[in-house]
Simulated scan of single mutants.
Amino acid sequence: MGYQYILFYKPYNVLSQFSSGSTPPAADSAPRLTLKDFIPIADVYPVGRLDRDSEGLMLLTDNGRVQHRLSEPRFGHRRTYWVQVEHLPSTAAIAQLRQGVTIKGYRTLPCQVELMAIAPPLSERDPPIRDRQSIPTAWLEMTLQEGKNRQVRRMTAAVGHPTLRLVRQAIAHLHLGDLQPGQWRPATPAERQGLLQL
């Protein structure tokens, strides 16, 4: 049997791992959801991570070579995010993001950033984002070649536009497509071939 490649739409408030860790949840809080609550397949592991408060595409596989190529920073690959931010970013703010910003003493690499004319076709988040009528929001499409910890959130905050919702839409040639939060599917033959060519 060949390697397995699973595309998963991680919902908000789900840990990007199969165990909830050694710290039990507080008595008054709900159990932490993990990948184990959604994916009934043994011996596949996530390629990279998404923060608990981020959503979107994850790839899981048992192919160590593919996992290494997609996780190792020196093999940079595209990751595309749909990012809802506070206020409408100015042309100058978008130019800053494109050129790279300094966060935690590190200068981010140049990236692609576009202001989206309409909100992306996403289902409502559960729970929904904080809605303040006095503060407008906007959606950006950001494509990065690197993936530092909480990088997108720190980048938008650095230019004065805190992130409200973050959804990873693509990893290299893989896309969310029709997946809904909590759903997964095996990679298609074409997607598998693309992964083997990395």
Rank of each mutant, 00 (worst) to 15 (best):
T156K: 09
D126Y: 14
I118Y: 12
L176N: 02
I129D: 15
R107Y: 08
R125V: 03
H175F: 04
Q84A: 04
T163E: 05
R150T: 01
T137G: 00
P110F: 14
D131S: 04
A93N: 05
P136Q: 14
L164S: 00
Q169L: 02
Q145I: 02
R98K: 13
D131K: 00
P89T: 01
A117E: 15
P128C: 04
R154H: 00
P127H: 11
L122C: 04
L88M: 10
T156Y: 06
E86K: 15
I103D: 02
R132F: 03
R98N: 10
P136N: 07
D131Y: 08
Q96M: 12
L174V: 10
V159N: 05
A170Y: 00
E124L: 01
P121R: 15
T108A: 02
A93S: 11
N149W: 07
P162R: 14
L122F: 10
R154W: 10
R107V: 06
T108S: 05
P136S: 14
P136H: 08
R130G: 02
R165K: 04
R98I: 03
I94P: 07
A170M: 02
T143M: 05
Q151P: 06
G160H: 06
I129H: 10
V167E: 04
T102F: 01
S123L: 12
C111R: 07
H175C: 14
V85M: 11
M116F: 12
P127F: 13
E124A: 04
Q133C: 08
Y106V: 15
R130V: 14
P121L: 14
P121E: 15
A117W: 12
P162K: 14
G160T: 09
S90D: 09
T156H: 02
Q99S: 14
R168A: 10
V113D: 06
W139G: 06
E141T: 14
S134H: 03
L88F: 15
H173G: 05
P89G: 07
Q151Y: 10
V85I: 10
R125F: 11
W139V: 05
L164I: 12
T143F: 14
R154Q: 12
Q112G: 00
D131W: 10
T137L: 01
E114Q: 08
L109E: 06
H87A: 12
D126M: 12
L174K: 00
V101Q: 13
V167Y: 09
L166M: 11
